[in-house]
Structure formats: structure tokens, C-alpha cells
């Protein structure tokens, strides 16, 4: 019978806390960059300029149809050979996570925007609004409300995905758990604590997403 012992793990609690903090930093950072890039990507895709739209779609497909882990390894180990200089692991991690987020957010935004009835933009145009005014005043306010649940779900996924950057030795939560495991030889406790920490952070967020979703369904 296995005897659980959390004492050695608790001694390393500052490692877990620091790791959790780093995970939050990479999540928030890549979400922020991913939002901006995703919005640009989305407008590029909806653009009437053919090549711009294809380029944006190509980028999206590339990042949606390859695993994040492969992207991470490629950008950290392969890309520097083309660039001629090395990327720090933190930079490779942030770039990869952000581009990955951008590809998925762009799809969330696009889905929200195209779901708004065409009559809405026509009504805006009919009172003399420019394309940008229609987007800003009429389409986006309605689209944002509608895309919120998908946006939150994608962000939850993004939080979990940061665990992958441990493979290039970024000292986030998962990396710290493996350090603690290495020092204490207690994988059961180390990785249980790790899982619990992710759960404790993400469970309230998914509950929040459910509330947002039921509110958007119920109207205003």
C-alpha cells in the first residue's frame, strides 16, 4: 500500500507558486499578443484583397493543423538555423504561444462577425455609415457578445497549453513539478499537486464561461 507523503512537496511550495505565476504570465502575455494578432488576422481574412485573405488563411491553417508541441520545437530548434541567431527559450515560448493563440482567436472573431445578420450592416450603410463605422458601431458590439463563450474556452485551452513550454525548459508550473519530482522522488504527490493546481485555477474560469454563455443565450 502506497503511503502518501506531502511533506516534501510542501517544502517545495514556493517552486509551485513561482511556477504557477510564470504560467499565468505566459498565458496572459500570449493571450494579449494573440488578441491583437488575431484581430489583425481576422480582418485580413475578411478583407476583399484576395492575396491578403489567402495569406491570413494560410497562416491560420498552418497553426491550426500542426500540434503546438511541434510548432514549439520547430521555432526553438529549427527556426534559428534559418535566422542565423538563437532564440532564447522564453522568447520562442512566447512567440509560439502567441501565434498559436492568434490563429484560433482569429477564427473565433471571424465566426462572431460573420454570424451577424447582413441586414445589420445594410441598416448601418443605409444611414450613411462607412464600412469601419458599421464594423465598430453595429457589428463588433453584437459579435463580441456572441463570441465571448468561445473566447473564454479558447483562453482556458491556452492556459493548459502553456504546460508544453516545459519541454524547452521554461520554468512554468509543469516544469517546476518535474523539478520537485526529481528532488523528492515522489511523482504521485508532485504530479497530483500539479493537476490540482491547474484544476483550482481553471475550474472557476470555466464556471464563469458557463454563466457568460447562458447570459448571451438569454439575450441582454
Amino acid at each position: 500500500m502506497y503511503t502518501w507523503s506531502f511533506a516534501p512537496i510542501l517544502q517545495a511550495s514556493d517552486l509551485f507558486l513561482w511556477g504557477a505565476w510564470i504560467t499565468v504570465v505566459y498565458t496572459v502575455g500570449s493571450i494579449a499578443i494573440g488578441l491583437v494578432l488575431g484581430l489583425l488576422l481576422c480582418f485580413a481574412r475578411l478583407s476583399r484583397i484576395g492575396p491578403l485573405s489567402w495569406l491570413a488563411q494560410g497562416f491560420q491553417e498552418l497553426f491550426r493543423c500542426t500540434p503546438l508541441l511541434v510548432q514549439l520545437l520547430w521555432i526553438y530548434y529549427a527556426l534559428p538555423l534559418l535566422l542565423g541567431f538563437d532564440l532564447a527559450n522564453w522568447a520562442a515560448a512566447l512567440i509560439t504561444l502567441s501565434l498559436y493563440a492568434a490563429a484560433f482567436y482569429a477564427e473565433v472573431f471571424r465566426g462572431g462577425i460573420v454570424s451577424i445578420d447582413k441586414g445589420q450592416s445594410e441598416a448601418g450603410a443605409a444611414i450613411g455609415m462607412s464600412g469601419w463605422q458599421v464594423m465598430r458601431r453595429i457589428v463588433l458590439p453584437q459579435a463580441i457578445r456572441r463570441m465571448m463563450p468561445a473566447f473564454i474556452n479558447q483562453s482556458v485551452t491556452q492556459f493548459k497549453n502553456t504546460s508544453l513550454i516545459s519541454v524547452i525548459s521554461v520554468a512554468e508550473l509543469t516544469y517546476m513539478a518535474s523539478i520537485v519530482n526529481g528532488q523528492t522522488y515522489r511523482p504521485l504527490e508532485s504530479y497530483t499537486v500539479l493537476a490540482v493546481l491547474y484544476f483550482v485555477i481553471l475550474f472557476p474560469i470555466t464556471k464563469f464561461a458557463d454563466i457568460v454563455e447562458s447570459r448571451t443565450r438569454g439575450g441582454h
Binding site: G119, Q120, A123, A125, A126, H220
Partner: peptide, 21 residues
């Protein structure tokens, strides 16, 4: 321009198309 035309010529649609927000 289309903007100026539409500022002077209003339109009402079959399905109202009010801004729900």
C-alpha cells in the same frame, strides 16, 4: 460618394433591421 447619397436618401427594410444592442 455612397456615403453622401445615403445621408440624403433613407431606407426602411422589410425586416426592420433595428440595432438590437
Amino acid at each position: 460618394g455612397l456615403g453622401e447619397l445615403r445621408r440624403h436618401v433613407g431606407m426602411v427594410f422589410q425586416h426592420f433591421n433595428l440595432f438590437p444592442h
